[in-house]
């Protein structure tokens, strides 16, 4: 280099192991007095040790799918606040199957829904080609005692009661689109849509 390198050039040189001892000493002195340069150095150093990062790139499409659905449901919800409609914040169906895992092994599905005051977690296990076993749990400040769960589809209505841990169980839930309502003291405290 004919001209004297600026701070960022010097830093890059150092990170690429191309600095002379003099340049390294100069950089060390600069780093002591320049917090912005230190931050840039820390970031570059951390981000180049990529083996520390799990493979998150593959999550991008799952994240996009989930957030698009969240937005769609949010818009559909409009100003409806009573009962509050839950938005899906987790759906394992969107996650790519880890390399080397046979699809049958991960054929269960986990779903999470959220309202401002409640969280609903569902685990679905296939028990037949067209039916799931459902285990769910409700949590939130309004859920202080066992409540009732109603699952309505076009063809049927099913119900379950939560236990003292707010867990509920439906042994056989036929594949369909459902509206799940959480009722506490006979009052609907949350509604979510589930597509099986």
């Amino acid at each position: 280099m004919n001209r004297e390198p600026d701070r960022v050039e010097l830093l890059m040189c150092h990170l690429e192991g191309e600095c002379s001892p003099d340049e390294s000493r100069r950089l060390e002195a600069l780093l002591k007095t320049d917090p912005a340069l230190r931050r840039l150095r820390d970031f570059l150093r951390e981000s180049t040790t990529s083996e520390k990062r799990p493979a998150l790139y593959e999550l991008r499409s799952a994240a996009r799918e989930l957030s698009a659905r969240m937005f769609r449901d949010w818009r559909r919800m409009g100003s409806q606040t009573d009962p509050p409609r839950g938005l899906a914040v987790y759906d394992s169906k969107n996650l790519p199957i880890p390399e080397g895992v046979r699809p049958a092994v991960v054929d269960t599905r986990r779903l999470k829904y959220k309202t401002d005051d409640m969280e609903l977690e569902l685990s679905l296990y296939p028990v037949a080609l067209n039916a799931y076993e459902l285990v769910g749990q409700v949590a939130g400040p309004e859920i202080t005692r066992p409540c009732r769960i109603e699952l309505k589809s076009e063809a049927r209505t099913m119900a379950a009661a939560t236990d003292e841990f707010c867990l509920f169980y439906v042994p056989r839930l036929p594949v369909a689109s459902y509206t799940l309502t959480v009722l506490a003291d006979n009052r609907a405290v949350a509604v979510v849509d589930i597509d099986l």
Binding site: P54, A55, L59, L66, M70, L87, V89, S92, L95
Partner: peptide, 18 residues
């Protein structure tokens, strides 16, 4: 965090942001 946990956090944060 694992990828499932990261996805979980992503969902929660997206909800809060929205």
């Amino acid at each position: 965090l694992s990828r499932e946990e990261s996805y979980d956090v992503f969902g929660q944060v997206s909800y809060l942001l929205l």
